[in-house]
Design a protein around this nucleic acid. Structure first.
Length: 725
DNA sequence: GTCATAGAGATTTTT
DNA sequence: TCTCTATGAC
């Protein structure tokens, strides 16, 4: 292992052993390098056996990265060191030991959609009107209580207001129903292991003896259950090393407690603290700008982070009229960067506060023909067609999962409607049997004829595949199932393009099962479902392909790019409107800004729009973000931008509402001919291969000099005719 | 009782 | 733009 790569403090932090270690690691200060080197050091020096090391991260992507980097440093068989997210490691603990608390190891993991479906049923049964408590509101409250480690009975005791009592009883019922469904939600993944440890010292000792050294990345984002897990697992050996940066704590809304890192010294005796204050990522101007904003926060540990490279470029500041122009300005600046600095598409990240902002940007990228990846938004596994098929798989594995049962019992439509399902639920309640078992005997509910047949048929399918689990592999099973329930016919019934796309997604899911089987040695269907439920879009993001990346600032944490665009910098959007009047929320937004800026290595562009349309209402912002004003003026360079858009302001009847109609002026374009040579600002020169449409709508197919083929709309492509290639 | 269709409503960030 | 919900037809 090459220790020369480490600076003095990094080296000391890596070699600190024998007591709890806290590493404050500023943005870009080599946090991951220290963690991976520390693991390698422990193994190399023989201080800890690889199988006794546990390294926890927050995202699968971070853990994947850690695995790759550790394996570069030391030769250790794959999987010997436990490296994973809190949630996935906890899921593994539960698969082994959940039988101790009344579940069985085939439990389902409920995502937010499933939670809300369950809560809808509960609220219905408790006769609580939606206007009073919404399923979303109840979910939110329950998750909040769980993050604070408040049990249903504690919540009941604490409640003094009527509404709190209602929430407490919903919470109680919800938790009972989860158990009946042999299911856990995301919060339970962390809470149930704690429960097991508290009730069973032997099991706790088993894990304490297994994991003799524990490392935690992004410690500033741990919540109370996660802190407690670390505390329990490090038990008497106290061999624990946490790394984090309080300035990058951006998950307070999910229950993260910055206190965990700020108070680490108090909570772990005899702890040694290191501060990594040399930034190896960003230029001086970028780092200074980021720090001058975040230092306005009152609640932060003092530090003095400095850049290891020169001052570099100033931050570009671009004012635009609206979100369409903002998107154009991004493309414009990006094209210039590519031309002048010979950058690749993958050198750029376009960041924004909310997923909804991606639309305008995406349109602009599509028009310009620049390849891009959007990370986040609607997850692949959250799509209806995917959830439906996964619902079948969950039910087949865990027949107690009534949420999945309700989801798929009439999909594709087979004549089993809401009323019948309700009847089943009541019958199951009365006879104290599982809902699926009720379906085996429809006559017992007074259902006969065609309906009874179709219920029996559904029951037989689930039963059949449940018995097939040990006989077929996951890929064979899902294929047979798709065939059996006639998904292809269902989606092909209509010739709507939507339905065709949906079936394509189903095929995509089957492909990912195949891929999973070839990747994992012991690939059970159950494990596939577990992986799927813990996967996020970020984990699918592939930084190998040469594309511009579009994502939220939250999703960008831990990544770095040569050039970063921060868009939508308007007061009310970033910082978000709802955080303006609460100091703590505003400080979190400020940290988010800090995270966004420090993703950049060489160049940052800050963009804001004077008008921005929000869906549904025509809310207009207009004031530049206060965070931009907190950047010293000498670090900023104003870049003017003129777009190809024209506007017409339309006044409403009473002159109160104004709407702006935006049209794109047609930039000069020629009618092209097949065989013409053209030049594109990014792709270079090429030859026109095909044409379609006329005038304004003309599209051209071009083969560029490097063999790249592209279809472009002439109007937007900004093509120039040239004489030769 | 079930199914298809049109119109309403919704968006902060995510393991 | 997409998904949920209310409504009426079968």
């Amino acid at each position: 292992m090459k220790k020369s790569k480490l600076n003095r403090v990094q080296k000391a932090a890596v070699e600190a052993y024998g007591k709890p270690v806290l590493i404050f690691a500023g943005a870009g200060s080599g946090k991951t390098r220290v963690l991976t080197h520390k693991i390698a050091y422990l193994v190399d020096k023989g201080l800890v056996e690889p199988r006794n090391i546990l390294a926890l991260t927050f995202t699968n992507k971070a853990s994947k990265e850690m695995k790759a980097r550790v394996h570069k440093l030391v030769k250790v068989p794959d999987g010997l060191i436990t490296m994973g997210t809190f949630h996935s490691v906890c899921a593994k603990i539960l698969r082994n030991d959940i039988h101790n608390i009344g579940y069985n190891s085939d439990f389902s993991i409920f995502d937010i959609q499933d939670q809300i479906s369950l809560l809808k049923i509960i609220l219905d049964e408790m006769k609580i009107p939606k206007a009073e408590i919404s399923p979303q509101g109840a979910r939110h409250r329950i998750s909040f209580l769980k993050n604070k480690l408040i049990t249903p009975s504690a919540a009941t005791k604490k409640a003094s207001l009527v509404i709190d009592k209602t929430y407490a009883s919903i919470y109680k019922t919800y938790q009972l129903e989860l158990a009946k469904n042999n299911s856990v939600d995301f919060d339970d993944l962390l809470l149930l292991p704690l429960k097991i440890f508290e009730e069973n010292q032997e099991i706790l000792s088993k894990y304490q003896n297994l994991w003799k050294y524990i490392l935690v990345d992004e410690y500033q984002d741990t919540n109370m259950p996660q802190f407690k897990l670390v505390k329990y697992l490090s038990g008497d050996h106290q061999q624990v090393c946490v790394v984090g940066d309080d300035d990058q704590s951006i998950y307070g809304w999910r229950g993260a407690e910055v206190r965990n890192i700020l108070d680490f010294k108090k909570l772990f005796d005899n702890c040694e603290v290191f501060k990594l204050e040399k930034n190896y990522r960003s230029t001086g101007n970028i780092l200074d700008a980021a720090i001058s904003v975040v230092k306005n926060n009152e609640n932060r540990a003092s530090k003095k982070l400095s850049s290891n490279s020169g001052a570099g470029n100033k931050l570009g500041l671009i004012e635009t009229n609206d979100e369409l122009e903002e998107a154009d300005a991004v493309i414009n600046a990006l094209e210039k960067e590519i031309k002048l600095d010979k950058r690749n598409f993958s050198d750029f990240a376009i960041l924004y506060r909310t997923n909804a902002q991606s639309r305008a940007l995406e349109d602009a990228f599509r028009r310009s023909g620049i390849p891009y990846n959007i990370v986040g938004g609607v997850r692949f596994y959250d799509r209806k067609e995917i959830k439906d098929l996964i619902g079948y798989l969950s039910l087949i594995i865990n027949p107690k999962d009534t949420i999945s049962l309700r989801r798929v019992v009439n999909f594709p439509p087979r004549g089993i409607g809401m009323k019948t399902v309700d009847k089943c639920a009541i019958k199951a309640e009365e006879d104290k049997i599982e809902m699926l078992e009720v379906l085996s005997n429809p006559q017992s509910m007074g259902i006969k004829g065609k309906q009874a047949d179709s219920i029996a048929n559904f029951y037989n399918i689930i039963k059949k595949y449940n018995e097939l689990i040990p006989k077929l592999n996951a890929g064979e099973l899902i294929r047979a199932l798709v065939e059996e329930i006639g998904l292809k016919e269902y989606y092909n019934k209509n010739s709507f393009k939507d339905d065709q796309d949906r079936f394509q997604n189903v095929l995509e899911l089957i492909k990912s099962v195949d891929e999973f089987i070839s990747r994992e040695k012991e690939a059970s269907l159950n494990q596939f479902l577990e992986e799927v439920s813990l996967l996020t879009d970020l984990d699918q993001w592939n930084d190998q392909t040469n594309r511009v990346t579009l994502m939220t600032i939250h999703a960008s944490k831990g990544l770095e790019f040569p050039v970063v665009f921060l868009t939508g910098l308007e007061d009310g959007l970033f910082p978000l409107y709802s955080s303006l009047d609460e100091k703590e929320k505003l400080e979190e937004e400020r940290r988010l800004f800090y995270v966004g800026v420090t993703r950049a290595m060489k160049k940052v562009y800050l963009l804001y729009a004077n008008n921005r349309r929000r869906i549904g209402s025509d809310d207009l912002y207009g004031l530049v973000s206060r965070f931009v004003n907190e950047v010293p003026e000498e670090k900023l360079e104003k870049i003017s931008f003129t777009s190809a858009l024209t506007r017409k302001v339309v006044r409403g009847k009473r002159g109160r509402h104004t709407r702006t109609i935006v049209k794109r002026t047609v930039v000069i374009f020629d009618d092209f001919q097949v065989g013409d040579y053209v030049e594109h600002s990014i792709f270079g020169t090429g030859k026109v291969q095909a044409l379609s449409g006329r005038g304004e709508n003309q599209r051209v197919g071009i083969e560029f000099k490097d063999g790249l083929k592209k279809k472009l709309v002439v109007k937007f492509a900004n093509l120039k005719k040239v004489d030769k290639l």
